[in-house]
């Protein structure tokens, strides 16, 4: 029988690929976790089966409406009276601006109507409601 070549590390499996994969996973989860914290105010958006997932989310600003009626422009809390100025300023930078309204499913409609009015005052007719396609 041929003698086995002397290999000092035969008893240790090579861990390098596993460590590579694990690092990749860590980086993935860190990035995902941070993005979620940075971007969105937490609300329950309504469910609408006919809604469509957009290919392009450019040219839109996000207005979030919580169930207590408080309004957020992006992640910042704003008052209703400031909203038209914010919208028209964005509109002058981006003419094809859409306002993405993330209204909580349980917010009374009167608050949504106020946001509509502010949007129209800011000169933007395109309003998009945030929805989930299903409750799952």
């Amino acid at each position: 029988m041929k003698p086995r070549p002397i290999d000092e590390t035969t008893d240790l499996p090579d861990l390098t690929p596993m460590i590579d994969i694990v690092f990749l996973l860590i980086v993935f989860f860190m990035t995902v976790a941070n993005m979620q914290v940075m971007q969105q105010v937490e609300i329950d958006v309504p469910i609408a089966e006919s809604s469509t997932i957009p290919e392009d989310r450019a040219n839109r600003i996000t207005v979030t409406l919580k169930d207590d009626g408080s309004i957020y422009y992006g992640p910042t809390l704003v008052v209703l009276d400031d909203l038209p100025a914010i919208i028209s300023q964005n509109k002058s930078d981006v003419p094809s601006l859409k306002v993405y309204v993330r209204a909580d499913a349980r917010v009374p409609f009167k608050h949504v109507r106020e946001v509509f009015a502010a949007t129209a005052k800011g000169g933007v007719p395109d309003v998009v409601f945030a929805t989930f396609q299903s409750d799952k």
Partner: peptide, 23 residues
């Protein structure tokens, strides 16, 4: 890895329902 997997909730993607205001 376990810490980040547990703390991350996978975000459901929001969809669009558009309205064009009559103005």
């Amino acid at each position: 890895l376990i810490f980040f997997m547990v703390t991350t909730t996978i975000v459901k993607e929001e969809a669009d329902l558009g309205v064009k205001l009559p103005s």
